[in-house]
Each structure stands twice: as structure tokens, then as C-alpha cells.
């Protein structure tokens, strides 16, 4: 299994897209995509944790006894998540306020632990960082797209710029819309993959 550095990054975008293909990290995907900006920020927050935890875990993997590797990885991930929490509180308080609970919950996002288990503990630091970057970008991309669709349908705006006056279909900003939009986007994605 040899991949070029570029492939490491691009495979997460379409082929192994964490949201649409691997179905990982569903909770933040549904909860934080009420607007394109929120989806984008959540994606970037996850990207940050993914890259750092992948690097740290690939660096320490050979020192960790096999039977306790999961708890050790979780502690490492939780550390980076908390660091991110402090940084966001200090420098982007409004983003932190709108994402709320879902920042600490990155700890239990299966994408992060999944990449640590499946990739980082078998590869070098640089490759792991690139893998984290690729998967993180794929996640960010899908969250932004879902957020954009929900924002356009639900409030008639895109990235905060309103282009349709009036209210839009509110159900899309609320809980049911999240499930519906994700479901239908997945259908489009499947169609696209099937055609290829």
C-alpha cells in the first residue's frame, strides 16, 4: 500500500470521505451544520485535533504497550481537544459559543480515534499529519456543503449573506432538516460514485 503524499491528502475528499462514504462523526455533522459558517468552523476544529493527535500518536505509538493503547490515545486526543477549547475561548469566543458542547465532544468523534487506530500508529509522523489533513479537509468539505444547503433552504442566505428575503423553510434549520439534507446529499454522492 504505497501512496504518494498528494494521494494521502486527496483520498479523504471523495473516495474515503469520512461523512458520505465512511459514515463517521455523524453527531457533529448533523448538529453543527445550521449554517455554512458553523459547518466550516466545526470542520476546521476537527481538522486541528486530527492533525495534531495523528502526529502525536504516530510519534509515541512504539512506546505504548498494546493492551493500554486505547486509553492512552483517548487521553492524547482529549488533551488536544481541551487545548483547542481554550484557544477558541480566548480568540474566537463567538464561534465557540455557537458550537458549544460539540467542541469537547470531538474527543468521542470516531473519526479521530479511527484514524489513530487505522493509520497513525503504523505510519511516520509526516504521513500521519498528511492523512489527518486529508481526512480533516474531507470532513470540513462535507460539513460546509451540508451547512450551505441547509442555510440556503432554511434561511435564504449563504455564508451569512442573505439573497432571498423572507424566512425560508425553517424546518431545514431545525433538527429534521439535518437528517433530510444529509440523507439526500448521500443519495447524490452515491449516484456520483456509481457513475464513475
Amino acid at each position: 500500500m504505497t501512496m504518494t503524499k498528494l494521494q494521502l491528502i486527496t483520498k479523504g475528499l471523495i473516495k474515503d470521505n469520512p461523512t458520505f462514504v465512511l459514515l463517521l462523526g455523524m453527531c457533529p455533522t448533523l448538529a453543527t451544520t445550521t449554517s455554512a459558517i458553523n459547518g466550516l468552523s466545526m470542520g476546521l476544529a476537527t481538522l486541528f485535533v486530527l492533525v495534531l493527535s495523528n502526529m502525536a500518536i504516530s510519534a509515541i505509538a512504539s512506546l505504548v504497550p498494546d493492551k493500554v493503547h486505547i486509553p492512552v490515545y483517548i487521553v492524547v486526543i482529549a488533551t488536544f481537544v481541551t487545548v483547542l477549547q481554550f484557544l477558541m475561548q480566548a480568540f474566537t469566543p463567538s464561534v465557540y459559543a455557537s458550537l458549544g458542547l460539540f467542541i469537547p465532544l470531538i474527543v468521542v468523534n470516531c473519526i479521530v480515534l479511527g484514524r489513530a487506530e487505522a493509520f497513525a500508529n503504523k505510519h511516520g509522523v509526516i504521513d500521519s499529519a498528511l492523512d489527518g489533513l486529508g481526512v480533516g479537509l474531507g470532513f470540513t468539505l462535507s460539513l460546509t456543503v451540508i451547512g450551505l444547503v441547509r442555510e440556503i433552504l432554511g434561511s435564504g442566505s449563504a455564508f451569512g449573506f442573505k439573497f432571498i428575503s423572507g424566512d425560508g423553510m425553517l424546518a431545514f434549520v431545525m433538527a429534521p432538516g439535518a437528517f433530510l439534507v444529509l440523507g439526500y446529499l448521500m443519495v447524490l454522492f452515491n449516484k456520483y460514485l456509481a457513475k464513475k
Binding site: A171, A175, P176, A178, L180, Y184, V187
Partner: peptide, 20 residues
């Protein structure tokens, strides 16, 4: 294209609407 998770998600969406 709907098989599996997509149709499940659409169903949850409708269920969520009922819970609203």
C-alpha cells in the same frame, strides 16, 4: 442510491419532524 443509510436518514428526518 437510497439503499441503506440514506433512506434511514430520511426516515429519521420524518420521525424528528413528528417529535417536533
Amino acid at each position: 442510491a437510497f439503499k441503506g443509510v440514506p433512506i434511514a436518514l430520511v426516515t429519521v428526518g420524518i420521525l424528528a419532524m413528528a417529535f417536533m
